[in-house]
Amino acid sequence: MLKLYDYELSGNCFKIRWFLNILGIEYESVAVEFYPSKEHKSAWFKEINPLGQLPVIDDDDFRLRDAQAILVYIATKYDSSGNWYPSHDASQTGEIAQWLSFADSLTATISSARLATTFFFDFDLEKCQTGGHELLRILDEHLWFQEQQQLEWICRGRHPSLAEIACFPYVALSEEGGISRQEFAAVRRWTDRVKRIPGFIGMPGIFPAGS
């Protein structure tokens, strides 16, 4: 069975749990205590991931780190519909990869701000928040113009893609990092739509949408 090295309060672990749930894949969760014991920096876990980062999966002895890489792997291997990551289509996969990289920037800014505010990490909070705010402005403008073209999702196409799964968690957790989404109306509508995708699960700090 697929094994997920997991931490409940991590947005990057949440996106893997959520995507596995969407696809209906059973998995075993191995809890790694990120806070306060910093188990992800322990010797045993660095054997698994020398970067000391969560999440990591182990699928039949195939080990993979990095949330975005894991999403690509799971979609390619397990999503028979091909909707989440249409690997045969150059422009779509290119576009998805662009937003997977954007998701990494969200981790570097919003997630870091959240680590500073809620887990007492010694980061430059203002810099993280300013960076996160800047990214949300870009996402909001992008999504507003998608709406103008009757497109609901980050990438073109009628079906949500891995870009949703990758970008959603730290957008939805931004307020824990002290970054309000009040001014990002198109982002707020998009988070409602994402929460209504069948198979959605929440995590602490992420609430369900109405029907």
Binding site: A185, R188, R189, A209, G210
Partner: peptide, 9 residues
């Protein structure tokens, strides 16, 4: 901005 079943902030 006020799409169905949404709450605008």
């Amino acid at each position: 901005d006020l799409v169905p079943r949404h709450v605008f902030h």
